[in-house]
């Protein structure tokens, strides 16, 4: 049986003496679009930093595609794509050059071709030869997604991907996530505040509150479990007040 896309076991992390994540157990299967919800400072970005091998957890374990994020860093980085919040690409380089660089770092055999194919897939081939410093937020975000998928990862991590986007950009991003999941079978792990987007895109949600995972279930099961609440936002607020 194939290992889950993401598996956390008793995962904890602290910055100096401040605990940020506490004993998190979580399993995300291949093909899921997982929405990781939580207030500012809840520990969502720290979780992504651990899963993308940027930092090592204080205790517990985390596996991506069956590989340990600390002991098998190379295998993990080969199967993940990552788009941090508000990231900028190399402004003096064109979109194609940026993508080719990240493709090379990921060991893609033909980086330039992969860059061109990825831009075409995301319907932004016209941006290929333009310098990224001239791009709007929406265009930068599309190039950001392009760099995250240029090596066709199995798991895509998105940290607050809608930050700075206008409603059109948000809708475009949502369609892209669904397209990546449907066409390429990518598992998506998404940190977000926008509950409206979560209900439209995600198959499963997890709620993090002060470093503890207080809830995880599918969207359908969640709406069934909270029949009195009108929207996901109401459910989220109720979870927060219940756990406080």
């Amino acid at each position: 049986m194939a290992a889950p896309a993401i598996q956390l076991h008793a995962l904890s992390h602290r910055y100096d003496t401040d605990p940020v994540l506490r004993d998190i157990d979580l399993t995300i299967e291949h093909g899921e679009i997982f929405g990781f919800l939580g207030h500012n400072g809840a520990g969502k970005t720290t979780a992504i930093n651990i899963l993308t091998t940027l930092i090592a957890p204080t205790s517990g374990s985390a596996q991506v595609c069956g590989h340990d994020v600390v002991r098998q860093r190379g295998e993990v980085t080969a199967c993940i794509g990552y788009l941090p919040a508000e990231v900028r690409m190399y402004g003096h380089l064109t979109a194609a050059e940026n993508l080719a660089f990240f493709a090379t770092l990921s060991g893609v055999p033909h980086p330039r071709r992969a860059a061109a194919e990825t831009l075409a897939y995301l319907e932004c081939a016209d941006l290929a030869n333009l310098r990224v410093s001239t791009f709007s937020s929406g265009m930068r975000q599309r190039i950001g997604i392009a760099q995250a998928i240029v090596h066709r990862p199995q798991v895509l991590f998105l940290d607050e991907p809608t930050t700075g986007l206008d409603p059109f950009g948000v809708r475009q991003l949502r369609e892209t996530i669904l397209q990546l999941n449907a066409d390429l079978g990518m598992t998506v792990f998404m940190n977000t505040h926008l509950l409206g987007e979560v209900s439209k895109v995600c198959t499963t949600i997890g709620v993090l509150n002060h470093g503890e995972l207080i809830y995880k279930d599918s969207i359908e099961e969640t709406t069934r479990r909270f029949p009195d609440e009108a929207s996901l936002e109401d459910i989220y607020v109720r979870m927060g007040s219940d756990s406080a």
């Binding site: 993308t52 091998t53 940027l54 190379g74 980085t77 990231v87 900028r88 990240f102 770092l105």
Partner: peptide, 13 residues
């Protein structure tokens, strides 16, 4: 300053 370090070290380098 632009957070690109995060992108670089999520790659195999």
């Amino acid at each position: 300053a632009s957070g690109l370090g995060r992108l670089l070290f999520s790659r195999h380098i």
